[in-house]
């Protein structure tokens, strides 16, 4: 009898393990980040790309509209593919794009903007990548959607695509 019970327990346990492993195969092993709860935007002080003077974060997000923070760099190839989409978004009145120039050479960055156009209402310089960390970023490109309460409500790792643009448009409506 005792044997039967332990056999039963073992079988249950093994089936459980099997199911877990089987399901585990489907879930990607690389971390796909997601915003679980709304996060407030960090407060920081940062150098402005154009004026080259320091500016406080509450100054940057002062208007009562949606903001997009887009991390980019001139050396980042995927940034080029998403750039036209950012240009398209920047035409939208109810949203402002803030660019975060990530670990970049300033001259190259200027050239990038001159060549491909400037979708950003303001560009911030993140020379050493630490501002990116404040936002919880992994690298470039990365895009954050910030709502009127100044909460980060969406986070997109990697270049954005038309689908994401549509999603953003739907949210800000």
């Amino acid at each position: 009898m005792k044997n039967k019970i332990s056999l039963f327990i073992v079988i249950i346990f093994l089936s459980f393990c099997f199911v877990i492993f089987y399901k585990g195969l489907d879930t990607p092993n690389n971390y796909t980040p997601k915003v679980n709860e709304k996060k407030n935007i960090p407060t920081f002080k940062v150098k402005d790309f154009n004026s080259n003077s320091y500016i406080n974060s509450d100054k940057i997000f002062e208007e009562n509209i949606f903001y997009i923070v887009n991390i980019w760099a001139s050396w980042c190839v995927p940034c080029r593919t998403e750039h036209p989409l950012l240009m398209q978004l920047s035409k939208n009145e109810s949203i402002k794009l803030i660019g975060l120039n990530y670990r970049d050479n300033l001259d190259n960055a200027k050239k990038f903007i001159d060549d491909f156009g400037n979708p950003y209402s303001r560009i911030l310089i993140d020379k050493d990548g630490t501002l990116g960390v404040e936002f919880g970023a992994y690298g470039v490109p990365e895009t954050f959607l910030i709502d009127k309460n100044k909460d980060i409500i969406k986070k997109f790792v990697g270049p954005i695509n038309q689908e994401i643009v549509n999603e953003i448009k739907l949210i800000i409506k």
Partner: peptide
């Protein structure tokens, strides 16, 4: 990596 060096600074 880029990420690691940023974290080190932080």
């Amino acid at each position: 990596s880029e990420f690691a060096s940023s974290i080190k600074l932080i």
